[in-house]
Design a protein around this nucleic acid. Structure first.
Lengths: 132, 132
DNA sequence: AAAATCATGTGAGGAAATCTGACATGTTAT
DNA sequence: ATAACATGTCAGATTTCCTCACATGATTTT
């Protein structure tokens, strides 16, 4: 796993922001977890914490649901995707921990062009409170 | 403002994750806000929501504090930084709203290599619960 | 068509996270 | 030594999130 992948799997978001970013309800998100499409981390206090990977997946789920695919189908699709990805990953060079300097260096350059977020289309004004 | 800047100023994080990412206490973060070094957004329920820009700033504040600079000094430094940045910004091409397709395109490629986060150094084991 | 399944809504009751405000404390500057 | 600064800590209130249960409309199966 590379540094950026580590970051992509760092659980940062509670469910609230995830709802806004994905335009899914809490109920939907929990339901998808129930069906093991995602496995968000938990805080000590048992609250879900989502990584950017989780959010990515949720957006894919949303797309697929919109296209009529059901839980089982999505699960299979995700499994396939992993089959494709893994052999590549196996060929990848061995995991290396990031030094803090690595982090610094990485971060000095642009970063976070943020992550595959759907800016809401349905209600084009509702992000106003987001910018200051 | 470019698309990625919009994203950098999108309030995504409640104070909890920000504490972990910056290794600052809630008290410190609120104190810095009190002294107007940051201006996190608020939810409808009055909770602070921090953007990546805010987190950036907090990390700078932390560095400067460590170097003995006080609130007033940091405030001036930030002001200077903006003075430098703004003329460039003014020369920048006029603001253009992102279409959803723009977003899609942006997001298809790598994204979020996450953002200038200090992986805690003091307690190298304490991120374990973060990866799954 | 009736029954079952699916995906989601909704509400209750409780626990966790965050809020503001006040006071305490160790450090640095005057 | 006093004052100003930066942070810790506590209390009480509010918000967010949790699980569990039941309701409901849409599809699929029988």
């Amino acid at each position: 796993m590379t540094g950026s992948n580590i970051r992509r799997s760092m659980p940062l978001f509670p469910i609230g922001p995830v709802m806004q970013l994905t335009e899914l309800t809490a109920r939907q998100i929990r339901y998808y977890e129930e069906h093991q499409l995602i496995s968000p981390a938990r805080t000590d206090g048992n609250r879900r914490m989502f990584s950017l990977n989780d959010i990515d997946k949720l957006l894919e789920v949303k797309d697929l649901i919109d296209q009529g695919v059901n839980m089982a189908g999505i699960k299979h699709l995700f499994a396939l995707k992993n089959q494709e990805a893994n052999p590549i990953l196996k060929a990848e060079k061995t995991e290396r921990e990031l030094s803090n300097d690595d982090v610094r260096r990485l971060l000095r350059k642009e970063i976070v062009q943020a992550g595959r977020f759907n800016l809401p289309t349905s209600n084009p004004g509702n992000m106003n409170r987001f910018f200051h």
